[in-house]
């Protein structure tokens, strides 16, 4: 994962991770109550611009990610577009009924998912696990056992990925892949999962014991190797985020691109 990220020395990496986490997750609440298609269109556009400037992904990755995310997001709204309720019919054949209302709702849903994916991606690509969990402990008072538990678990991801490759190879060698059909497929998935889980559980238990052997649980009051604090960057971040959200709302009232200001009407 660490090879995909380009430069960690940008503004968004230097923001207090707890602040970033809380603000970014609270955007969910904001856009959950947006029923104006114009606002959603402008918001997704502005977040796309923000994503372009701050994402930690290298160029090739981010282009493909955006494209695929957009397509998938619109797919996820396909039921609403094809089978939603509405009275102004655009297209009708047997069960398929596309109406203006359902189309507007579908597009809004798709764009909303798209925006959340972008926001999530901004967070995921500019946040390193270690500072994130340190900040959760220091600013949000998350119990240390959970925070270090997460960190220890994160350390195992590359090991698990490598293990997954090995198991896949081993199953191939044993001829597991030669069997065809749904039953064989289920059998194979179960084997994969059980072997992965058995190894991971054992690894987790051993790691927990090793951590306790280093007197982890006995500490009442601990010091921190990294102290995550506040800086001017946090102010910039809040301003940038507020501006992005505000611009979406402002543009939608001054430059409404569609007539659908409330998709829930009718």
């Amino acid at each position: 994962m660490d090879t995909v990220l380009t430069n960690t020395n940008t503004l968004f990496f230097k923001i207090n991770p707890s602040l970033k986490f809380i603000l970014i997750s609270s955007l969910f609440i904001v856009y959950l109550f947006v029923q104006n298609l114009n606002t959603m269109i402008w918001a997704s556009l502005f977040f796309l611009i923000l994503y372009y400037f701050v994402s930690g992904l290298s160029g090739k990755w981010s282009f493909w990610f955006v494209l695929i995310t957009l397509i998938v997001s619109l797919f996820s709204a396909s039921a609403m577009i094809l089978f939603g309720k509405g009275s102004h019919i655009i297209y009708h054949q047997s069960l398929i009924l596309i109406t203006q209302e359902s189309l507007a709702r579908g597009v809004l849903l798709g764009l909303r998912t798209f925006t959340f994916s972008l926001i999530g991606m901004i967070f995921a690509t500019t946040t390193l696990p270690v500072p994130f969990f340190y900040s959760l402990m220091q600013q949000l008072k998350v119990p240390v056992r959970y925070a270090y538990g997460c960190l220890a678990a994160f350390r195992m991801i590359p090991i698990m990925a490598e293990e997954f490759m090995h198991i896949r190879q081993a199953m191939r060698v044993r001829g597991m892949t030669r069997q065809k059909g749904v039953k064989a497929f289920c059998e194979r998935m179960t084997r994969y999962t059980i072997t992965m889980l058995a190894q991971s559980i054992r690894r987790a238990q051993r790691t927990a014991i090793a951590m306790e052997a280093k007197r982890f649980s006995m500490t009442e009051k601990r010091t921190y190797f990294y102290e995550i604090g506040w800086s001017r960057n946090d102010v910039y971040f809040v301003i940038i985020l507020l501006l992005t959200v505000a611009l979406g709302f402002v543009f939608s009232s001054y430059f409404p691109l569609t007539p659908y200001t409330n998709v829930l009407d009718q």
Partner: peptide, 23 residues
């Protein structure tokens, strides 16, 4: 399975933190 942190220095620091050694 003896480490909980991704980096060498952080792992030793983890023990120092447990002992409440000043930063």
């Amino acid at each position: 399975t003896q480490f909980c942190m991704p980096y060498v220095d952080e792992e030793i620091a983890f023990v120092l933190e447990n002992r409440s050694i000043s930063r």
